[in-house]
Design a protein around this nucleic acid. Structure first.
Lengths: 240, 240
DNA sequence: GAGTGGTCTAGACCACGGT
DNA sequence: CCGTGGTCTAGACCACTCC
């Protein structure tokens, strides 16, 4: 039951844009008109427009107005969802798929120098080291290589790893996932990838490296998700 | 000579954060204290904090305060630059490298049905279809496959393509690049990739598909940048 | 010069976190 | 309960675009 004004304005404008109501002149109404229409302040209107801009629907030009970005059925797939992305779900952008998880390794280890340099965890702290293969429609499509800080995320078990670690962290531990920083790469397939993934003829993998932070600013996770080619898309928006 | 208050506050806070001045308690001072310190309004302070948050340096928690995200030398490479990314420069995140451009194809064609479905350009409009290989330190590392809407970006020549199309568009045509939407994929190498790129043993490429919009909201470009494995990183930030 | 978005101020109330 | 960030209002001036 959110009664936030800017959110209502944002939702209304978004619906109209997607329905093509403003496309005649490729412009949004000027701020003053939106203020009058919604009976709200300039702050609320501008915040709604900023949210539309963050999503890649509009672009504001000082002195001119708020421009609509061209969109077509083909370019819809470039649009950002702004949905929160937890774990491997982020890989299947909006696709509903059957998937199964195969826990191929589960250990609790102390961080040594080498692991510290990779994960940025402090030397000596205990971490869960987990490897899980994700089968999507029967295909071994992704291997997640997780390291969780055991002090910040205690009590993870193989059974939890098979279901959903993120569900456990959020619902049971009440851990808030504040920020995830990601790096995307393409790597030559290592032995682990070749033995665990259905690569077919391909000898490379995509590699999504994620480090995740809780709402106290502490990094609780380092994860590499290696995935097979030709199946996964990642969207990005750059605004000037 | 920008005299924008929030920008000054942002710069000052960023310097302090990176210098570790606030790391003792993992918190930024509360808004009221920053307002007093900078002698500015709450608006300016909050806008500065929002910019820090967009960069992945801090995270605001209602009722608690503004938390600093842990950062270490290893995780610095995950930080967002917020620099504008034009063309292939975006691939080499912050690396200074010698590179050379080899124009392997340059045509002006009309968009047919197949090309329209790929690029989202309207059937029948003229486009420049350009293929360029980027040699980085002598390695054929990237092939850019560009389609530019010739009505929006007239006058591109092979000579311009060899130097920098973006430089020409921005400086000569005064075209403003407002927004770039990207999709990142990993693809099996096609014949073009195998013949033009130094793939070595690898038989896959990274594929960065970009569609770019000018400040009137019109899509002027569709580009696929195919790049060799193991060399390029792409950063992303997800905020909840 | 008129119109428009960008920045800024001062002030208010609300919602959430922790004590 | 108090302290904090989130939302909102009303009003002002500036910088840019376009005629």
């Amino acid at each position: 039951m959110e009664k936030i004004t800017f959110e209502n304005i944002y939702q209304t404008l978004k619906k109209r844009i997607l329905a093509g109501k403003y496309s005649i002149k490729m412009r949004l109404p000027i701020e003053d008109d939106l203020i009058k229409e919604f009976g709200s302040s300039r702050y609320a209107v501008r915040k709604a427009i900023e949210k539309l801009a963050a999503e890649g629907l509009v672009y504001s030009v000082k002195g001119r107005g708020v421009v609509l970005l061209e969109h077509s059925p083909q370019t819809q797939q470039f649009n950002l969802d702004l949905g929160d992305v937890t774990g491997v779900q982020g890989l299947n952008s909006g696709r509903a798929l059957d998937y199964e998880t195969d826990v191929v390794a589960f250990k609790q280890v102390m961080v040594d120098q080498a692991l510290s340099e990779k994960t940025a965890f402090e030397v000596g702290i205990p971490v869960y080291a987990i490897q899980r293969v994700r089968l999507i429609n029967g295909t071994r499509a992704v291997i997640d290589i997780n390291y969780f800080n055991a002090q910040l995320t205690p009590g993870i078990t193989p059974a939890i790893a098979k279901r959903s670690i993120y569900h456990y962290l959020q619902k049971k531990l009440k851990l808030k996932i504040a920020v995830v920083k990601r790096m995307l790469r393409v790597d030559s397939a290592a032995e682990l990838d070749q033995t665990q993934l259905d690569l077919g003829q391909n000898n490379c993998v995509g590699n999504m490296i994620s480090i995740s932070f809780n709402d106290e600013g502490r990094q609780f996770e380092y994860t590499e998700s290696h995935f097979i080619p030709n199946e996964f898309n990642f969207n990005q928006l750059i605004r000037n």
